[in-house]
């Protein structure tokens, strides 16, 4: 790692911490329901309280996603979505808001383009980095090199089942933050957040992670408050996607205000 690298997502998390709160990270699928609306929804999300945007790239085989996100991304793929759209969306949202914009992508989409070319284009679009849910540090040699070269954040996941050794490997490989998986399962809203999430954060910090954000199953302000009391950031996905599906960018903005405690 070169000394000049600055993590955009770490900066956003630190800025939230300076205000005495956990960062709010919102997920939306790229190009859902269409490119323009997805950009508007992302801007509404950020203007109404999200500190970091996570743009999911629709993929044919999303094994970590539940029905709501699957349905949305399947629709996007069915209309002929191409990867180049993601970089346009990242650029448009970054330019409009100045927020840290991460992509969330299954690894084959990076692999097909080539890790270095993917990183180059993401950096050129102003992107902050990527979350890779099916990439473990053990397999990430190319991605580590590419993200180092272009100064991008790379967020790996730490799970309730990760022992101390793996938690340390994840903490050392990650830049920006560690994504703490709150439950054993796929994306989707749940009524409550399990106690496991706090243990994941503790284990990850004990293993050397400086910032740990928690996702999976978070859908209400009460979850955000609860998780925000011990984590550095709270990640919300499915609830926002459902809001976009049912009420467009306005509904996304409204939910973001609620989740961030602004209304």
């Amino acid at each position: 790692m070169t000394a000049v690298l600055q993590s955009k997502s770490a900066a956003a998390i630190d800025a939230a911490a300076a205000e005495g709160r956990a960062a709010f990270i919102g997920y939306l699928p790229a190009g859902y329901p269409d490119k323009e609306t997805s950009i508007q929804a992302a801007i509404a999300l950020i203007e109404n309280g999200a500190d970091i945007l996570e743009v999911g790239i629709p993929y044919s085989d999303p094994v970590m996603d539940g029905p709501v996100i699957q349905q949305a991304t399947t629709e996007v793929l069915a209309r002929g979505f191409r990867i180049s759209e993601v970089f346009e969306i990242v650029q448009a949202v970054t330019e409009a808001t100045g927020a840290a914009v991460l992509v969330m992508t299954y690894y084959n989409l990076i692999d097909r383009m080539g890790a270095e070319e993917f990183a180059r284009r993401l950096a050129a679009a102003g992107g902050a980095g990527a979350i890779t849910p099916d990439l473990i540090p053990d397999e990430a040699e190319d991605w580590l090199a590419a993200t180092d070269k272009y100064g991008l954040d790379r967020i790996f996941l730490s799970a309730p089942t990760s022992g101390p050794e793996r938690a340390q490997m994840v903490a050392e490989a990650s830049r920006g933050f560690v994504y703490g998986v709150s439950i054993m399962g796929v994306t989707g809203t749940r009524d409550s957040v399990s106690d496991v999430a706090e243990q994941v954060v503790e284990a990850s910090k004990a293993a050397g992670a400086r910032r740990v954000c928690v996702g999976l199953g978070v859908s209400a302000r009460s979850h955000v408050e609860e998780i925000g009391s011990y984590a550095d950031g709270v990640i919300v996905g499915t609830a926002l996607v459902a809001a976009l599906r049912d009420g467009g960018p306005e509904a996304v903005g409204e939910l973001a205000r609620q989740l961030s405690g602004k209304s």
Binding site: I136, E139, A159, T161, R166, V181
Partner: peptide, 12 residues
């Protein structure tokens, strides 16, 4: 080959 899998399954 390898293990291109979510971290949640690595312990298993």
């Amino acid at each position: 080959g390898g293990r291109w899998m979510p971290e949640s399954l690595v312990a298993a």
